[in-house]
Amino acid sequence: MDTETLIDAWRRLLSGSGKSWVLFEHGTCVVIDEPTGELAERATETLREFGPVQVATSAGDFRVLELKNGEGWLVTGHHPDVVTFVALDEPADPSHLAVGIHGRSKRDQDGTELHVIHVEDNGPAAE
């Protein structure tokens, strides 16, 4: 999925939430409730700690949420503010297990590579 499509998907998903967010290269988003300081830096710290997968620990756990708009799925992990988007055309197998493993793999890539592609600052100063 190209960068602009991914950014647009997250904008739609978080529309009206008033939350700031930072998007990483493989589709993992870190949502920031209280946007203070350098958002990309804060999100990178969070993802550095909670992105990499460690099987047989809570870092390997995931939950799959199917999007009502038919766009794909959200895959959550062990940190409530770290969520990965999986588009409908990404996994070969659309079962929740396959989607979850695919999303967890994307989170792991983002958590080890830590490449920010977009910052959406919806804090008070951004209004």
Rank of each mutant, 00 (worst) to 15 (best):
S15M: 07
G70S: 12
I7L: 03
E25H: 07
T112I: 12
E34C: 10
T5G: 06
R48V: 00
I32Q: 04
R48F: 10
W73S: 04
G18T: 01
R107K: 12
I7V: 11
Q109R: 13
E71I: 00
D33L: 14
D61S: 15
H26C: 15
V86D: 10
V119S: 04
E66W: 07
H96R: 13
A126G: 06
V83C: 04
P52H: 04
R11C: 01
S20R: 10
E66Q: 13
A125K: 01
E25W: 00
H118E: 11
V86P: 05
L88P: 00
L14C: 00
D121E: 08
F85V: 00
V22F: 11
V82F: 10
I7A: 02
D89A: 14
T44A: 12
W10G: 09
R107I: 06
G77E: 03
E71N: 03
V64I: 09
S95Y: 09
H96I: 03
H102A: 06
T57Q: 03
L74V: 01
E113P: 00
D2M: 07
A59I: 15
P91H: 13
E25V: 05
E4G: 00
T36Y: 13
H26V: 14
R48H: 13
R11P: 00
D61L: 15
G123F: 03
I32V: 10
I7Q: 07
P52S: 07
T76K: 09
G103H: 03
L14R: 10
V64P: 11
G100M: 01
T84E: 12
